[in-house]
Amino acid sequence: MSNTEHIVQFFRSDEEYVRAAGYFLREGLEAGETCVAVATAEHHLQLDRHLLDAGLDPDMLSAEYRYVPLQAEQLLPTFFDARSGIDQERFHRQFNLLISQASSRGQPVRIFGEMVSLLADQGQPTAAIQLEELWNELSRQHHFSLFCSYKVSPFTENPRYRKLLHSIHSHVVCEGA
Rank of each mutant, 00 (worst) to 15 (best):
P125G: 07
E114Y: 10
I111T: 02
P125R: 07
F91N: 03
N96Q: 11
A127N: 06
P108I: 04
S117N: 08
S117T: 09
R110A: 00
T126R: 13
I111A: 03
F112E: 08
S100K: 14
D121F: 13
S104V: 12
A102D: 06
Q124T: 05
N96G: 12
L98R: 05
A120C: 10
Q122N: 12
I111M: 10
S104D: 10
R93V: 13
G106P: 01
I129P: 08
S117L: 03
R110N: 02
L119P: 02
F112S: 09
R93A: 13
F95K: 05
G123C: 01
P125E: 06
G113P: 00
V109K: 00
L98Q: 01
M115W: 04
L98S: 10
L97V: 12
V116A: 15
E114T: 11
A102W: 06
E114H: 05
F112C: 10
S100N: 15
A127F: 07
P125F: 02
F95R: 07
L118F: 04
I111F: 08
G113F: 04
I129Y: 06
Q130L: 10
N96S: 15
Q130R: 11
I111R: 01
P108G: 07
G123V: 05
N96W: 06
Q94I: 13
G123R: 07
R105L: 15
R105S: 13
P125S: 04
S117H: 09
L97F: 13
Q122I: 09
V109I: 07
G106Y: 00
L97H: 14
F91P: 01
G106I: 03
S103D: 10
H92P: 05
Q107L: 10
S103G: 12
Q130H: 14
T126M: 14
P125I: 06
V116Q: 14
Q101Y: 14
M115C: 02
E114I: 08
Q94D: 12
D121P: 07
G123D: 06
S100I: 11
G123W: 06
G106V: 00
D121H: 11
M115G: 01
R105C: 12
S100F: 09
F91I: 08
P125K: 03
I111C: 09
I99M: 00
S104M: 11
S100Q: 14
S104P: 06
A102R: 02
P108W: 03
P125H: 03
F112W: 12
A128F: 05
V116G: 14
I129E: 08
M115K: 05
I129G: 07
R105I: 05
A127E: 06
A128M: 02
G106Q: 01
H92L: 15
D121W: 11
L118E: 04
E114C: 13
L118K: 08
V116Y: 10
A120M: 07
L118I: 13
F95W: 14
A127L: 05
N96F: 12
A127V: 00
R93N: 12
I111G: 06
F91V: 05
L98P: 03
D121I: 07
R93K: 15
I99T: 04
R110T: 07
L97M: 15
